[in-house]
């Protein structure tokens, strides 16, 4: 067993884990943060994408022990004070999902993209989401959702003007 100490969505955690435990299993099974999904399990689909020290990574291809001393952000860390993150709002407004399985990974990959490029054009959005597969939408509405978010973030209209929404409310 190995002792790991890491910050997840702002909360410090210390656990003894098997070195072979994948980060995605640590998040889902130890911390019960099941928003991060296991899709293909072969580092193709991106459903397990989280941010590790500010960079989007596939949590099925990272060991929990590699994250010792790191900061991790998962989809559960996007909404603040019951308000959706502008990216989540974009997926809502632009119908950026159907079944929703890929959505947490899409959101975190898009979040990672916006960290390095806050104003991506359509091509940059598509390139930034190249590591994420969606079998429902054909991607068009996902791109529109990210564009919606970049617009509201640039205008500052998301958190101030958008109606307060509780995550999970219909």
């Amino acid at each position: 067993m190995a002792r790991i100490s890491l910050k997840v969505n702002g909360t410090q955690h210390v656990h003894e884990v098997e070195p072979r435990m994948l980060l995605v299993h640590y998040l889902r099974e130890v911390l019960s943060l099941t928003g991060t999904h296991v899709g293909c399990d072969t580092s193709q689909c991106g459903a397990c994408t989280v941010l590790l020290d500010g960079k989007a990574v596939k949590a099925c291809s990272v060991l929990a022990v590699q994250a010792d001393g790191s900061e991790v952000k998962t989809v559960e860390g996007l909404a603040q004070d019951g308000r959706l993150h502008p990216l989540q709002e974009g997926f809502w407004e632009e119908h950026g999902l159907q079944c929703g399985f890929c959505t947490p990974g899409m959101l975190m990959a898009a979040y990672g993209l916006l960290q390095s490029n806050p104003h991506p054009d359509e091509h940059a959005i598509r390139a930034g989401l190249e590591g994420n597969l969606c079998r429902c939408t054909g991607y068009h509405n996902i791109v529109k959702a990210v564009q919606h978010a970049t617009k509201t973030m640039a205008e500052g209209t998301s958190k101030t003007a958008a109606p307060a929404r509780t995550v999970g409310a219909a």
Binding site: S43, G46, T49, L52, K55, A56, V57, K58, S61, V62, A109, G112, L113, A127, G128, E130, G131, N132
Partner: peptide
């Protein structure tokens, strides 16, 4: 190489 997530690691 790969995709953005792979390139970050």
């Amino acid at each position: 190489i790969g995709d953005p997530q792979v390139r970050n690691m």
